[in-house]
């Protein structure tokens, strides 16, 4: 059984259907526990963002879902298959942008490399590949080894999207891209989701960029999830409360929710609480606090609050 007692927020998304799940997934590199009993649940058709500090296990998790990492314990299910067994078959149904920027064979042209990709993906959409390449300003005659980091990323995105896979695994998809191309990529992803039924798992440090695009959030720390829930639930129930309080105020006995973070000055508190808005507001008010404002946290702020609460505990 997996130990989820350390999670601050809900981590169970219920009965699915899920496109991707892991159960008690564990992976060690020597003495380092990269994944530590991870229960990932990515609902069918969801756009899921994976947030967490460096070394939290995000890339290891994505590589495991691709069948590129041999895990030691637990189970992995990607559209009904274990990628460790049916590697190539599973990978054919996934659009993958890896953490690294190496694309194709150095001596090949970009055009040749993309044609090469098409062989592995029967659903390759030539017209769409051309359209994306044009939008990204990709020159098919370029040799792969001459591509810059950002150019390489654009080609990787074309390769991941052009076969309209049922699953997209995007590891820092906008890494290395300039502002304009990053923005264009978000627009391309929005259109892609409108045109093709897709389940997307995105790992990124630029959470604010993808926040409007995603509907599920997972916060990963030390190889396990601190929270995994719909974005709207996060915005609706993890709230910051600003209140004026009397001198020496010690807080309510029962705040009506789970206090994730306490900060603020002596007579003006700023608490981050997981719970029902009205219940928490009542709890604070009955204890003598005058609640001035209640506001949701961005996914970024929520992740920081959870991660710092984790360190404090």
């Amino acid at each position: 059984m997996t130990d989820n007692t350390r999670a601050m927020l809900p981590v169970d998304l219920g009965n699915g259907p899920f496109a991707v799940t892991t159960r008690g997934l564990a992976k060690r590199f020597g003495s380092v526990r990269a994944l530590n009993g991870l229960d990932l649940q990515v609902p069918e058709g969801a756009a899921y963002v994976l947030v967490g500090p460096n070394g939290a296990g995000k890339s290891t998790l994505i590589r495991t879902l691709m069948g590129l990492v041999r895990y030691q314990a637990g189970t992995v299910d990607v559209q009904g298959c274990d990628p460790a067994g049916g590697g190539a078959e599973v990978r054919a149904g996934i659009g993958y942008v890896p953490e690294g920027h190496r694309f194709g064979y150095a001596w090949m042209t970009v055009g040749r490399c993309l044609e090469h990709q098409a062989v592995y993906h029967p659903s390759w959409d030539k017209r769409y590949a051309r359209e994306l390449s044009t939008r990204y300003g990709i020159d098919p005659a370029r040799k792969c080894h001459t591509l810059s980091k950002g150019e390489s990323r654009r080609v990787q995105l074309v390769a991941a999207l052009a076969h309209r896979p049922p699953i997209l695994l995007l590891d820092e998809p906008t890494d290395g891209l300039d502002h304009v191309v990053r923005d264009e990529t978000l627009s391309i992803l929005s259109e892609h989701l409108a045109d093709s039924p897709t389940t997307v798992l995105i790992s990124t440090h630029r959470v604010y960029e993808v926040e409007p695009l995603v509907d599920h959030v997972g916060v990963l720390s030390e190889g396990r999830l601190l929270g995994q829930l719909p974005r709207d639930e996060l915005h609706g129930r993890l709230l910051r409360y600003w209140a004026d309080v009397p001198e020496g105020w010690s807080g309510p006995g029962d705040p009506g929710g789970r206090v994730v973070r306490r900060s603020g000055a002596a007579r003006a508190i700023e608490w981050t609480v997981w719970g029902d808005r009205d219940t928490v507001t009542r709890g604070l008010s009955e204890a003598g606090a005058a609640v001035r404002e209640v506001a949701p946290l961005s996914v970024d702020e929520a992740a920081v609050a959870l991660l710092s609460a984790r360190e404090a505990s």
Binding site: L186, S190, E191, A194, L213
Partner: peptide, 15 residues
């Protein structure tokens, strides 16, 4: 259209 608006706002089409 849902596609155009989500593309220009960079939001999930479902929104």
């Amino acid at each position: 259209s849902v596609r155009d608006l989500s593309s220009s706002l960079r939001v999930n089409p479902r929104t």
